[in-house]
């Protein structure tokens, strides 16, 4: 039997689209707001808190990868962006741009994954949209999510708030997401067990903030990796950041792959890790909330905005924002 596929009619507003929304979207994501199928959703307000809004689009290829899929990613990415401001995520929107011919079975799996991940993060999908583009005008599936959360006015976490004297932590080994994608995406015959780290981190942020509000910066080192994210923090906060290469956690297989294809792990994307900057006395609380893999990797100093890596060899070098995406090289 031919697999059932997305046709132009799935996005055309007629019967097929309604059946699709009912059978797939509502079945996996249903909640009191989405079930009403109104054109928009009315949400609860928290008068003593501040609303926080973010949006992100997901075009990852392949859509299913070791350790995750585009559905899990589109929830985690947006939820983690909200939580990086210290916000508790409340609701997400969900928009699909589907390419004609995309298999319905795959789409159903992706939507199920969205439902499961949203539950894990404790957020609801409250409204959405589906468009279908002609074959050849998309890459199977693109997803956009926007997220609304609320933050306590006493919490002020921003890439502008890093101060001299602070310590820099990461919540676990770096580069696993990009190296998992690499294994699945490129036709390169490498066998290894690295999985994407794609995970919602909002509940951990919530736990951290229950113990201290004295956290200056939280940032997720997604595309561009650790080095690009910290360069941005150094610029925005006008500080000099020094990292200790030997303290930066990188899994053995990720390191081995980096050596083979010539990648720098400091520029690899992550989807379930945070950089957290805080005063030294708060680091035990960060470790308690984010687990034993959380490591202090550097410190913040007064000075011209700069990011310096003290290398394992005893030298040092400046790190800058990623200029070009990394491709396997021979030189």
């Amino acid at each position: 039997m031919e697999p059932k596929i997305i046709t132009i009619n799935h996005g055309a507003g007629g019967r097929l689209m309604h059946e699709f929304i009912h059978d797939s979207i509502v079945a996996h994501l249903g909640n009191s707001k989405l079930d009403k199928m109104d054109d928009s959703s009315v949400l609860q307000n928290y008068p003593h808190k501040l609303p926080v809004l973010t949006t992100d689009s997901y075009v990852v290829h392949p859509v299913f990868f070791s350790g995750g899929d585009i559905g899990r990613l589109c929830v985690c990415g947006t939820v983690n962006d909200l939580a990086a401001s210290g916000a508790e995520p409340l609701a997400l929107t969900l928009s699909f741009i589907l390419e004609e011919g995309f298999e319905l079975e795959k789409l159903d799996k992706i939507i199920a994954s969205i439902g499961k991940t949203a539950k894990e993060a404790g957020v609801e999908i409250v409204t959405g949209d589906t468009k279908v583009v002609e074959k050849g005008k998309g890459d199977g599936i693109f997803i956009n999510t926007a997220g609304l959360g609320f933050v306590d006015p006493g919490v002020s976490i921003s890439s502008h708030n890093t101060l001299p004297g602070d310590l820099v932590l990461v919540t676990g080994p770096l580069g696993n997401h990009e190296m998992a994608l690499f294994k699945d995406r490129e036709n390169m015959n490498f066998q290894y067990s690295v999985q994407s780290d794609v995970t919602p981190l909002n509940l951990k942020v919530k736990e951290l903030l229950a113990h201290t509000r004295n956290i200056h910066t939280i940032k997720d080192p997604t595309r561009g990796g650790l080095a690009s994210a910290l360069t941005e923090i150094a610029q925005n906060s006008q500080v000099r950041i020094e990292l200790e290469e030997e303290k930066i956690p990188v899994d053995k297989e990720v390191k081995a792959m980096c050596d083979l294809v010539g990648f720098d792990p400091l520029y690899l994307a992550n989807e379930g890790k945070y950089i957290i900057v805080c005063p030294p006395e708060e680091t035990p609380k960060v470790k308690a909330a984010f687990g034993s893999e959380t490591t202090v990797i550097g410190q913040v100093e007064k000075g011209q905005p700069d990011l310096i890596l003290n290398t394992a060899s005893g030298g040092n070098r400046r790190l800058i924002m990623m200029e070009n995406i990394q491709l396997p090289r021979i030189c």
Binding site: G262, D264, L309, N310, T311, A312, S313, G314, G315, N316, R317, C331
Partner: peptide, 16 residues
């Protein structure tokens, strides 16, 4: 050698 160039930069050799 391009790989020496990269390695010298990566290890921060010039700072030594």
């Amino acid at each position: 050698c391009g790989t020496h160039t990269m390695a010298i930069a990566r290890y921060g050799i010039k700072s030594l």
